[in-house]
Structure formats: structure tokens, C-alpha cells
Design a protein around this nucleic acid. Sequence first.
DNA 1: CGTATATTCAACCACATGGTTGAATTAAAT
DNA 2: ATTTAATTCAACCATGTGGTTGAATATACG
Lengths: 121, 121
Amino acid sequence: MVELNPHPLDTVFHALGDATRRHMLRQLAGGERTVGQLAEPFAISLAAASKHIKVLESAGLIRREVRGRTHLCRLDPGPLASAHEWLNFYERFWANRLDALERLLREEDARKPPAPKGDDQ
Amino acid sequence: MVELNPHPLDTVFHALGDATRRHMLRQLAGGERTVGQLAEPFAISLAAASKHIKVLESAGLIRREVRGRTHLCRLDPGPLASAHEWLNFYERFWANRLDALERLLREEDARKPPAPKGDDQ
DNA sequence: CGTATATTCAACCACATGGTTGAATTAAAT
DNA sequence: ATTTAATTCAACCATGTGGTTGAATATACG
């Protein structure tokens, strides 16, 4: 689709929909990184990494400071907060589910001592 | 990229990266909806809507119950919880920022009545 | 039965995406 | 002034995406 005025969340979620870019964000959670440093863990060309970084940048997820011949990137958490906020709306759904499980377990617990390890996802 | 074994978050975030699909999820937050009902608000063909729904479905975000000739869709919040969880890791960044702002404001407040507008971001 | 309804399927199209390579740009180092 | 290093640019390619249309597939209705 030729989306003239894409919703910010479009670009943010799209940027997050790629493992390479999510990994880069994790790196940036540890502090500033150069393009080369961000590219280093991946078996892709620098040009490809540069494109990923541009995607993150135009989603507003990172800022770039050109410092001499290297580009310093740092995380901008704002859009992540927006995405988190958006998802927050649905919290009641999984919260409900967990509440129900919790209630169930509490009942079980009051009845008989050891409950088997429950797991989901 | 030909991604053989894509990370679940890839498909989830990708599914969320489209306003039409996010809108459909919001509809489903109100309860079960048929394919036709989900498609109705949009100026796209039923086939296109059907594809969107399939994207949501294969991201695990919705379940489908074929009931006669209509397909009933309902929200599955699990993957949303995963995405939320993933974003949660970064919470400290925007939380820190807010904490810092808050601290700053409190200090300013205690010192002199009207503070000049500080801005960042 | 025949017809209307709900949905998918298949083929197609324009454009986006993620990758490549090689050349260009810019700045630091010798 | 040359060379080396960090990064982008441009062109290209294969595949994915979101849309269309028209036919196919079920299922309900009279």
C-alpha cells in the first residue's frame, strides 16, 4: 500500500518486526554504539546494517550523532513507550487469564499442598 | 530475507505494524467477530481483509472457529503479552527519563517558584 | 432443487523489503 | 599528500506485502 501518512505505530512496530533490529536495540540498551559496532554481530554487509539502522532511526527509535567519521547511535525510548502503551490496552485480557489461573491455583493450594508446575508460553 | 524459522516476535510485531490489523484487534477486544464484520469498516475487498485476518491468525493473535458458513474470530492475547513483555525490558529507559524529569521538577519547585520551560526530546 | 451468503483461492500487479556489490564521501592517521 | 577507516549511496536482485478481480467452495434459505 502507498501509505502517505503512516501512523507512527506502523513504522515502530514494523521496525520491531525484525530480529536483527531488535538485537541492535538491545545493544543500544547498553549505551551508545557506532554503526560498525552495531553491525559487527551480524553476518551481513555494512550497507545492509546501515539500512536497518536507518529504519530504526526513521521510526524514532534511535538518534544519531555524527562525530567525525563515525556515527554514534543511542536509544530513544519514546516510541517504545508508545508501543508499550498501545499494548497496555489489551493487558486486561491476559491479566484476566492470569487472574483466573491465580485464583484457581490459590483454591488448589488451599485444598492440597503441592501443585504441579504449571507453564504457559 | 528467507527466514526459515522466524522468531515469534517477528510475526507478531509484523502483524501489529499495520493500522488495519490493529483496528481489527480493537474490534475483537469487544468480542467475537465474523470475517465480514471485521472487514466491514474498511474500504478494501473481502479477499484483502481475509488476508489481513490470516496474518493475525498465523501470528497467533486470533483464533478462528468455523461455524457453518461463517468464521468466528476471537482475540488471543498471548502474543500481545509476549510483545508487551519484550517491551517491558526497556521500561527503565522511559521510566528513568520520567523519574529524572520528576526529580528535576521537584527540585526546581523547592527552589524557586516559576521554572523556565526545559525541554528535551 | 436452485439461489443467495460467507469466505477462500488463484492469478495478477505495483511497490516495499532485505540483501548484495562496487563506487563515493568524509575524516583521521602517517 | 597518501593512505586507511567509517559510513553511505546507487544500482541491482529475489522475495514479500497489500491490494485487486473473478472463480471456486461451502453452507443456509425458500
